[in-house]
């Protein structure tokens, strides 16, 4: 076959190129640019090399918010993944209740982030919020605007409320794809309920659960709006996770260099964890 060479065809790629440039490459490069420069206003910049990176990596503030970030992500994963699987297992496999359950499960996912934050803020208020008031009525002193423990509890339960559904829906899809013959074979082999879960359901859900963990990891690592609206990182700095700290540095204190260096470290971390996790899971798949 004869191929026609026409370099004008490159113009066809231009729209995509522009789109990617404007929504990814240029913003990212701006951040890279900021991360190696210092400014004193008036749009005057001086090259500083890796100074900001060194500073960020050695700052206690960054270490603390990173630690809080891992605590948050770890906790919500430890709750949402098993809880999601349990709910998916309990959901009916057929009949009238299937669509009802699915719609109920999908509801929290449809609520915008800032609304979720505002909702839980009011819900958890000790004087007028139903949850806050009820907990105090049980004799437990609960005030998320003053007590770090209460604030953490509220942030985590909010995220669990908002995102467990995603895990449920993914796990449910995985469960539904298991042919009946597997369950029948398990009965013929006298497998216990636990054995059915361990040797049939869990292996068959592995792929979707990998995706669920990845999505929840990335989302929780980048989460900003909900905790910002709920606690604003407080009381003090006790719920200041990476993203909130980053915005504080960039827009609150106008430390562009520090904030940009933080962004890049933050970005690379997310990328690294996802890559390591994904390739580990996929290698297990091939063995």
């Amino acid at each position: 076959m004869n191929k026609t060479w026409n370099n004008k065809a490159w113009f066809m790629v231009l729209p995509v190129l522009l789109l990617v440039a404007f929504n990814a490459v240029i913003p990212l490069m701006t951040v890279v640019n900021y991360s190696v420069q210092e400014t004193f206003g008036n749009n005057l910049f001086f090259f500083e090399g890796v100074k900001w990176f060194r500073e960020v990596l050695h700052s206690d503030r960054f270490h603390d918010s990173l630690l809080r970030q891992f605590f948050f992500t770890g906790t919500i994963l430890a709750i949402e993944i098993p809880l999601g699987v349990i709910i998916a297992l309990a959901m009916p496999r057929q009949g009238f209740w299937v669509p009802v359950c699915l719609v109920l499960m999908a509801l929290p996912l449809l609520v915008p982030w800032n609304v979720v934050g505002a909702m839980w803020n009011i819900f958890a208020l000790p004087d007028i919020g139903l949850m806050g008031y009820s907990i105090n009525a049980l004799g437990i002193d609960f005030n998320f605007t003053r007590q770090p423990a209460s604030a953490w509890f509220t942030v985590i339960i909010m995220d669990v409320w908002h995102w467990t559904s995603l895990v449920v829906l993914l796990a449910y899809a995985g469960l539904r794809s298991i042919p009946d013959a597997y369950y029948q074979a398990a009965r013929i082999d006298s497998a216990s309920r636990w054995a059915v879960f361990r040797y049939i359901q869990l292996p068959k859900m592995k792929r979707v659960l990998t995706i669920a963990v990845l999505l929840r990891f990335m989302d929780s690592f980048m989460i900003y709006t909900e905790p910002f609206v709920l606690t604003g990182g407080g009381p003090g700095n006790t719920t200041t996770i990476l993203s909130i700290d980053l915005v504080k540095a960039a827009l609150g204190e106008f430390n562009l260099g520090i904030a940009a260096a933080m962004s890049i470290i933050y970005f690379l971390m997310t990328l690294l964890v996802c890559w390591v996790f994904y390739s580990a899971m996929m290698r297990g798949e091939d063995e």
Binding site: A181, Y182, Q184, A185, I188, S190
Partner: peptide, 16 residues
């Protein structure tokens, strides 16, 4: 099924 002590081979291979 468990109590009947039957073996069954299905249309699509079922393995763990």
């Amino acid at each position: 099924t468990e109590a009947r002590n039957i073996a069954q081979v299905f249309q699509f291979p079922v393995i763990y």
